[in-house]
Write a protein that binds this DNA or RNA. Sequence first.
DNA 1: ATGAAAGCGCTAACAC
DNA 2: GTGTTAGCGCTTTCAT
Lengths: 350, 350
Amino acid sequence: MTITIKDLAEMARVSTGTVSRVINGGPGVGEETRKRILKLIKELDYQPNASAHGLAAKRSGNIGVIIPHTGGYSMATAYWPGLLTAITERAAAQNYNVLLSTARSEEDVASAYQSILKGRRIDGLIIGAEQFGDKQLAELLLKDFPFVMVGKSVSISHYYVDVDNAGGARRMTEHLIGLGHRRIAMLAGPEHYPSVIARVGGFRQAMAAAGLDPGLVYHCPYWTLRAGEISREIIRSGIGVTAIFAAAGDLVTGVLQAAREEGLRLPEDLGVATFDDHPLYNYFAPAISAVRQPIAALGEAAAVQLFRLMHGEIPEEKGIVLPTELVIRASCGRPGLKTEAGRVAPETTS
Amino acid sequence: MTITIKDLAEMARVSTGTVSRVINGGPGVGEETRKRILKLIKELDYQPNASAHGLAAKRSGNIGVIIPHTGGYSMATAYWPGLLTAITERAAAQNYNVLLSTARSEEDVASAYQSILKGRRIDGLIIGAEQFGDKQLAELLLKDFPFVMVGKSVSISHYYVDVDNAGGARRMTEHLIGLGHRRIAMLAGPEHYPSVIARVGGFRQAMAAAGLDPGLVYHCPYWTLRAGEISREIIRSGIGVTAIFAAAGDLVTGVLQAAREEGLRLPEDLGVATFDDHPLYNYFAPAISAVRQPIAALGEAAAVQLFRLMHGEIPEEKGIVLPTELVIRASCGRPGLKTEAGRVAPETTS
DNA sequence: ATGAAAGCGCTAACAC
DNA sequence: GTGTTAGCGCTTTCAT
């Protein structure tokens, strides 16, 4: 039924070894024979059996991508999907397929790790899960398995791609300061995450450099509801915050929710900025200013770096750090200045 | 170095066949032996080689998911990412991995099809690409390969999951009519797509039933810019449209863009509704009313259906059609009525 | 340049 | 209940 290398060999009156050489573009095959076999492959629409190839050659032809899946929401931001698309495209260009794992928890990571990696289903791995534990990272390093992380781990040295989190946060903070904001709060993610540490660092640096209080940093899980609660506390605390800089997409919606519920007008009563842009931010009321990450470039870089490692190359740099871009819209305002932007209406469902 | 079934057999003083039976949970193994081997597997952290298993058992342990990738934007809506997440979760629960392909064009589909399917890298396929050609569909059917489509193809009978496109569009249209709109335009996707046909049908049905002109249907590629141009034409045409119903997420942003540029206030001057909800629509100015699709349930259903097929079951129904939900926010308005919602400010980049 | 043959790690009869 | 063994389809020495 299905055609194998043996069939091809018989039809071409050569051995399976020769056919194999042709398929893999190896040397040591006569020009005439090669053509004949190639023609046959085209005609019969032959495609090598991936399992057999994998078993014999010890390569699967797949790369793995493992990304976090926090509360069913991660894929609804533009970040992971964009990354995944870029990686998949690059992989396809190299004739590799992408094996996807989403990880809700550390156990998920462990089990994905088990099945995918130890089962030799992949030849390389791109890790986007901050949950990925140091022990697993260490094991990967130990067995010299090619992998690239999106974002840098704190404790372990590995290949990674990342954006300039500190620089992006610093520049946005400077922008807010430039607009006249003096008391600015940062709503940041969980404090042990490297990206969070970097963004907080950039924020503090800008605040301190301007002689302002760099201490208004509030950590929060990546969860809109909780971000709303904390934002409400910030607003009600009476410490005179005129702007909140949300350090992630899941957090900014919480800030907006809180502002709405507290009856604050944006941006007159409260300036808002966020990290990680989304095309839809442009249609918010007011449109949200954001630090844009070069998502596609990030995914592309991760894939390129991974393929280098898989080819045995040794990149000179452990990390590739891409710059961010400031996207200024209307939400940062200018404290005390009136604008025509309205409030967001409450939602009804039917 | 890496441990194989043979090593296990030696250490347990049994044959590889017995170990294999244990691994696959097969019958015909003594309780005591089974325990001993299981213990060994745990201790040694043994994981079967996927390629070897695949080659011998003729199953890869992977399912394929192929989704469209139109202009680098598809992953930035909540639809495909949400679907993918749900599928991946379900697959993981069944100890299957997900092999992802994104398809920009028909050639991409063809090549993905080649490598993935003919290379026996997957045991089943979920197809989300409307580009998937009838010839390939026919080939899948012919070789009895298990697959499920998300969305129904027009010409070929296959297993699929879908949402009630017609019903959702009809109900939203009825809602608009109920608010007092009399001349409503639908901005729909490319006219040969089944989902588009269904949505247009629902719209027309509601309009006709209310004695209104069901003819204001404008087809448009899934491309915000073009949607903006067409919307502008509708607005300028002077046919007195008071509401535009965008039949997809990529289109509604175009409508908003056009309304902004033409200086129309929403919803007083123009009511807007869309198909396919997004969490961020709640923060628009005004918040956008939408027909919400049960995305996670859709992905889940697709996976469940696929696994049924892979297990040789014959579902009684070819299609699973899930209901939609109307999410009413502020954007539909009431023609002629003033509200406090403001306009969206222009974007600047730095 | 080409063929022969020994695996790769696992499964599935078929024996006992 | 357990062992034996012949493949699964391909790669890769090693001869020639």
